[in-house]
Design a protein around this nucleic acid. Structure first.
Length: 638
RNA sequence: GCCCACAUAGCUCAGUUGGCAGAGUACUUCCAUGGUAAGGAAGAGGUCGCAAGUUCGAUUCUUGCUGUGGGCACCA
């Protein structure tokens, strides 16, 4: 005779054991329709789960986040069911929910084709129409193993074998089909609805290990209703429109080619943007007390053996053999080179903290399948710096790095930043006392920043804890950019020392830090964040002068020359096209400002300005226009 | 690296069961000389990613390679 307590505190007394379904039916018909599962004392249960004791419950509908997740999980089951109906002999493995959808991994020799995907989706809809009833059973582990062995589901057997003995083994039936699953699930397949779509098929390793067999993974997305589904599909399309590879081509910024996969051919406009970012950062870093250095691209193998990189990453390094058989590695990191400069000459504690920055171009032989436009390349420029300091200085230095990073992100239009903190891994070097100190120092710096942060236990580098700075872009995607690592290892390995107050030789702590990480990657992110519409100061072509007709070419050229003298990146378009055509062409190329001149402007020494995204026209005095544009053409230094 | 798909004009793409390669756009020239998101006409433009194979004949079929895309794995 359970008393059922609702979230609003209301209590209903039932005479007998009661199920979620019975509860919602007492409340109302529409709720009974919408309900997915029920939360009983904080645990999600099937709607037909029998409640025997006094409990507090919450009805989960598909409008709740958990409800939508249940929907997606059911869709994954129905996907597997459809696949096994259509392709007997296919083994099922796992089928979890993911952001915006679900997937299911299958073991089958023949690949699924695009047509198969369509067939499967149609069959899924049939299964929804069939409205197969869900039934949950608890089996003995040995029974479950025997059963799945008998029906040839060998991966399920492996999964069951890893379930601990005190855990229940529940089997869900949807009609005749069954799957090992923790649940909970909807009452029947009809409750999923049809707002789902299979999106892609790809390969995925069993248990996520590349040594294992590769399965075929089918991805799908599933929503409450058609409208949400369509919103999602539109969102994907919008993201595609921002793709930096597409915009990079359209805006004539860069290209890639077969002869050097993963390396960027920067066109003039792209390189202008690249250099602008560096110019800007040079100023920021100089103000923050950094000195800029530059170290060789090629360093003898021996230095990489000393640093430990050869052993760990040797296979992923580009190397070069000289005619006299010496092996040089093209640097995959800047730090060993930087330490050489630190080591030059005796350093005193008075020199610390010593901050050395380097726009170092590094090469890494990334696996071919990892390459992705500017976001994952084999040759990239790090906005790197190494800070040599004492243990006591760690907190202060981490704080100032964090502040610098936040300032720079803000200047570039990113205000939504989260931090990821990773502490000591199991396999590590260095004394635990030093780890205590550096972890505490890093944490203190994070807390002082007042930013949201998550902790990744044991994910730090083997030589020290780290922070990763993650920014959220205009359409809500997260990108990991900056990083700050405390290094208790490399300075010692590479012989860095300083003379402390008491005259003794000590090994400094080294902080590795990158603001954007990779300039190439960051430019990719910037392009997508702004959908190509870069702020004026970053635009490679800030303005184009457009004469109305050829009679005004000379005036247009004069305006162009004056703009150029004022340090503005500009062009003049003397092509024999109508003004409508030119405006369309250059706005499509994301030029932020267009300056138009015709008879009116020539007579009055003015210019008419149009801004990207606006239909307004503004005719102003030429000198004033140049002054205005110049004043906008400045680094956003606070 | 692994699985699947794709590779045709500068760009975006079509090419129907193997028979001399197509459109739009950009480009060049000409006409029009224009007032705020595509004026008009003509011309030029391709070893159909590379290499083998099958065939009288391959952009089309087969195999290998390279690159790209979507994932997986990796990411100092």
């Amino acid at each position: 005779m359970p008393d059922i307590t609702f979230p609003d505190g209301k209590i209903i007394k039932f005479k007998n054991n009661v199920s979620g379904l019975m509860i919602v039916e007492t409340i109302g018909k529409s709720l009974a329709k919408e309900a997915c599962v029920i939360s009983v004392n904080g645990k999600l249960k099937d709607l037909n789960y029998e409640i025997k004791e006094n409990s507090s419950v919450r009805i989960i509908t598909s409008k709740d986040k958990e409800g939508l997740e249940i929907l997606r999980h059911d869709a994954a089951h129905v996907l597997a069911m459809a696949v096994q109906e259509l392709f007997p002999g296919t083994q099922v493995t796992i089928g979890p929910i993911i952001e915006d959808g679900f997937y299911y991994d299958f073991s089958r020799k023949e690949p699924f084709t695009k047509d198969d995907l369509e067939k499967i989706e149609n069959r899924m809809k049939e299964i929804v129409d069939r409205d197969e009833i869900t039934k949950r059973e608890v089996w003995k582990k040995s029974d479950a193993i025997n059963h799945f062995k008998k029906i040839g589901e060998h991966y399920k057997v492996q999964i069951i074998e890893t379930i601990s003995n005190d855990e229940e083994i529940s089997i869900y039936h949807h009609g005749k089909w069954q799957d090992l699953c923790r649940g909970p699930h909807l009452l029947s397949t009809g409750r999923i609805g049809k707002a789902f779509k299979l999106t892609k098929v790809s390969g995925a390793y069993w248990r996520g290990d590349s040594k294992n067999e590769m399965f075929q993974r089918i991805y799908g997305t599933c929503w409450n209703n058609e409208k949400d589904l369509n919103n999602y599909l539109t969102r994907i399309k919008e993201a595609e429109k921002r793709d930096h590879r597409k915009l990079g081509k359209e805006m004539d910024l860069f290209h890639f080619r077969e002869e050097s996969p993963g390396s960027v051919f920067w066109h003039s406009k792209g390189w202008t943007l690249f250099l602008k970012l560096i110019d800007y950062m040079r100023i920021k870093q100089k103000n923050a007390g950094y000195q800029e250095i530059n170290t060789p691209e090629l360093l003898d193998k021996s230095i990489w053996e000393k640093s430990g990189h050869w052993e760990k990453f040797g296979e992923l390094m580009f190397t070069s053999t000289t005619p006299d058989e010496k092996i040089f590695a093209i640097k995959p990191m800047n730090c060993p080179g930087c330490v050489q400069i630190f080591n030059r000459g005796l350093k005193s504690y008075r020199d610390l903290p010593l901050k050395m920055s380097e726009f170092g171009k590094v090469h890494r032989y990334e696996p071919s399948g990892a390459l992705h436009g500017l976001l994952r390349v084999r040759a990239f420029t790090q906005d790197d710096a190494h800070i040599f300091c004492t243990e006591e200085q760690i907190t202060q230095e981490c704080l100032s790095v964090t502040n610098l990073i936040l300032e720079i992100y803000k200047d570039l239009g990113f205000t939504n930043i989260i931090l990821k903190y990773s502490d000591r891994p199991e396999v590590r070097v260095g004394d635990d006392k030093v780890w205590d100190k550096s972890e505490a120092a890093l944490l203190e710096a994070i807390k002082a920043s007042k930013l949201e942060y998550s902790v990744n236990k044991g994910e730090g580098a083997f030589y020290g804890p780290k922070i990763e700075y993650i920014l959220r872009d205009a359409i809500g995607r997260d990108w990991q950019c900056g990083t700050l690592q405390v290094d208790l290892n490399l300075p010692g390995r590479l012989g860095a020392t300083f003379i402390d107050k008491d005259g003794s030789k000590k090994i400094p702590v080294m902080l590795h830090r990158a603001l954007f990480g990779s300039l190439e990657r960051f430019i990719g992110i910037l392009i997508e964040h702004y959908a190509g519409k870069l702020p004026l100061w970053l635009s490679p072509v800030q303005t184009i002068v457009l004469p109305i007709s050829q009679d005004f070419d000379d005036y247009a050229k004069k305006v162009f020359e004056q703009l150029r003298k004022a340090g503005i990146n500009c062009e003049v378009d003397l092509k024999n096209h109508k003004i409508n055509y030119k405006i369309r062409e250059h706005f499509l190329a994301k030029i932020p400002l267009l300056l138009i001149c015709g008879k009116k402007e020539l007579d009055t020494n003015t210019i008419t300005i149009r801004r990207l995204g606006s239909e307004k026209q503004e005719t102003i005095n030429l000198d004033k226009a140049i002054r205005d544009i110049s004043s906008q053409n400045k680094f956003p230094l606070n």
